[in-house]
Simulated scan of single mutants.
Amino acid sequence: MNTPTSPQNTILVLAPPSVQGATIPVIGAHIGVPLAIYNLVPDGLGARVRIDPPRAGTVDPTDTIVLMLKGESAPLDSKPVGNPNAPIEMRIPVGRLNHARVNELYYDIIRNSQNVGSSTPMLEALFNMIRPGLKDVRPDIVGHSELGMTLPDEIKDGVGPGIVSAQVCFTYPYGRAYDTITLKCNGEAFVQTCIKAAPDSAKLLEIINQAKAGKHCGVAQRLYANRAQAGDALIANAYAREYDPKYLKASECFPTADNATAAYWYETILTQDPNNAEAKQRFEELQK
């Protein structure tokens, strides 16, 4: 057909994919991908991605939809469109998301071996390998060993009629902004969302170094990536140097150089500061 709405002569307008069960909001990306919807799904096939159908009449049932991760040539998933008016479910296989950087997801529509459209903008996703609280080191007792709760003295022996409110403090490793804490008391749930002021760059580098020294490598990588992607050039530069062969100081968390990852973070600096001479020089050198 050669009508104005024919799939053969229409420029496709494709909305970004969506990841079912993703965490929103997060700092440094559009969504977060928790372990529960990715590594720990019952069928072991990874996170579920929903792709809404494009405008009616713009795709054929025989077109192929291909889910991609920026920077990789191998598709995450692909399948025929089938019913062009129905949403399409795809999967992100376990092991494909990178916890050390922001993952950028998009999909292509392929017709007769030609790409006729790509979704835009890319969906930015953070993958967290570590749950709040880290590992429960005492699975033999009830409750998570690393989750702490401190009650004020005035309510430790019970709540009398004169107590209107009381401050309860919670502690746990690897806490992040937008974590949700639920306190249950006598069957009633009290929910608090954590929005914590971020430390400055120098303080964050101290925290990262402590994580590295304690061999909490995933924590260090996530702290680096979150702040670097949010536009902190000092943190992005420090993270790039962890992978840059020129500056690498081999450690348990960063044992070997990785030119591609170093270049990625130098490029991130340049998107914020195109005149950063050092980032530009190292980015160009790592592309050779």
Rank of each mutant, 00 (worst) to 15 (best):
K246C: 05
N186P: 07
V159E: 12
A29S: 03
G21Y: 13
A240Y: 01
E267K: 11
N259F: 01
K135R: 07
R138I: 05
R222C: 07
N259Q: 14
M122V: 03
Q8G: 12
V137T: 15
D244A: 13
H216Q: 14
P42V: 03
N128R: 13
G57E: 08
T58I: 02
V49C: 09
L286V: 06
G158H: 14
N226T: 14
N98C: 12
C253A: 15
P139S: 11
V116L: 09
A240Q: 02
P245E: 09
A15P: 15
H216F: 05
K196V: 11
G175W: 13
T261R: 08
N85F: 11
N112M: 06
N9W: 00
L134H: 09
R96E: 06
T268S: 15
G187N: 14
G21F: 11
G32K: 14
N2P: 03
N186I: 13
G231S: 12
M90G: 01
P245L: 10
I181W: 02
L204C: 02
I27K: 15
T150H: 02
S78I: 02
I92W: 00
L105H: 01
V19M: 15
V191G: 10
I24D: 11
T193Y: 12
V164D: 08
T5L: 09
L105W: 00
E285C: 12
D43C: 10
G32Q: 08
G162A: 06
C253F: 02
L123Q: 00
L97K: 06
K215H: 05
N276G: 03
C217M: 06
D52M: 04
T62Q: 09
A228E: 00
P4S: 01
Y38W: 07
V26F: 09
Y243A: 05
A29G: 11
Q192R: 15
D60P: 13
Q167A: 12
L12W: 07
Q114M: 10
N209E: 08
Y224Q: 04
V191C: 10
E206R: 10
L105M: 03
N115Y: 12
A279S: 07
L151P: 00
A177R: 10
G187M: 05
L126Y: 00
G28W: 08
L151S: 03
V81P: 00
I141N: 07
D43P: 11
A260V: 10
R282H: 03
L40Y: 10
V94E: 01
Y172A: 12
K280V: 13
A202Y: 02
M1N: 11
N259M: 04
G82S: 11
A220V: 08
E267A: 06
Q229W: 04
W265N: 07
Y38Q: 06
C217G: 12
Q210H: 10
P7I: 00
E154P: 12
L97A: 02
A220P: 13
F254I: 01
Q8V: 09
A262K: 02
L12D: 10
A166F: 13
L12M: 11
K184Q: 05
H144N: 15
Q210S: 05
Q287F: 15
V219W: 00
T256P: 10
C194S: 03
I92G: 01
D232T: 06
D244R: 03
V19Y: 09
